[in-house]
Simulated assay, not measured.
Amino acid sequence: MEELTLTTPSLLFSAVSLIMLAYTNRFLSYAQIVRTLKTEYDLHPSKITAAQIENLRSRLYLIRMMQILGIVSLLLSVVCMFLIYVGLQTFAVIVFAISLLSLIASLGISIGEIIISVRALELHLSAMEHRKPE
């Protein structure tokens, strides 16, 4: 097995940072949508708005998991670099592998969240198609 160097785990920094930025932007846009839907629901309660709020709740939970796993991946990369620095190569390899698995899990959850989001948008498009102006 080739020895792990400080360069290898440091490569994850830029990738994970960009992913975390995307996750945060997604979270902030959902937070704004939730606030808007809550106001709408308070003024005009409906089953559709309640369902949209529930859908957003599940998507927010997924984003939270994505963010947590992304942060764990980044944290473990730093721990891996420290272990390499102090000469604990075997432990560094194990920690780096766990870091990569965390990143893989985060990205996998992201795929699931995107699928749910697209389904929600398809429902909106379908509802609009049924109300086409003549």
Rank of each mutant, 00 (worst) to 15 (best):
M20E: 14
M20N: 07
L21V: 03
A22R: 11
Y23I: 02
T24D: 00
T24R: 05
N25Q: 09
N25V: 12
R26Q: 12
F27D: 04
L28M: 08
A31F: 13
A31H: 15
A31P: 10
A31C: 11
Q32P: 00
I33F: 05
V34E: 12
R35M: 15
T36I: 08
K38H: 14
K38R: 11
T39Q: 10
E40R: 07
E40G: 02
E40I: 02
E40D: 07
Y41W: 03
Y41H: 07
D42Y: 04
D42N: 03
P45T: 13
I48S: 15
I48D: 12
I48K: 10
T49R: 11
A50Y: 15
A50S: 14
A51C: 06
A51D: 13
Q52C: 09
L56W: 14
L56S: 02
S58H: 05
R59H: 01
R59E: 03
L62T: 05
L62Q: 11
I63V: 15
R64W: 13
M65E: 05
V72D: 06
L74C: 01
L75R: 08
S77L: 08
V78N: 09
V78I: 14
V79W: 01
V79G: 07
V79T: 05
V79C: 08
V79S: 04
C80N: 02
C80G: 08
C80Y: 04
C80K: 05
M81W: 07
L83G: 02
L83N: 01
I84W: 06
G87E: 02
L88V: 14
Q89V: 05
T90Q: 14
T90K: 12
T90E: 12
A92Y: 10
A92H: 07
A92M: 10
V93L: 10
V93G: 00
I94E: 09
I94N: 11
I94C: 03
I94G: 07
V95N: 09
F96C: 03
S99A: 14
L100Y: 03
L100H: 06
L100T: 05
L101R: 03
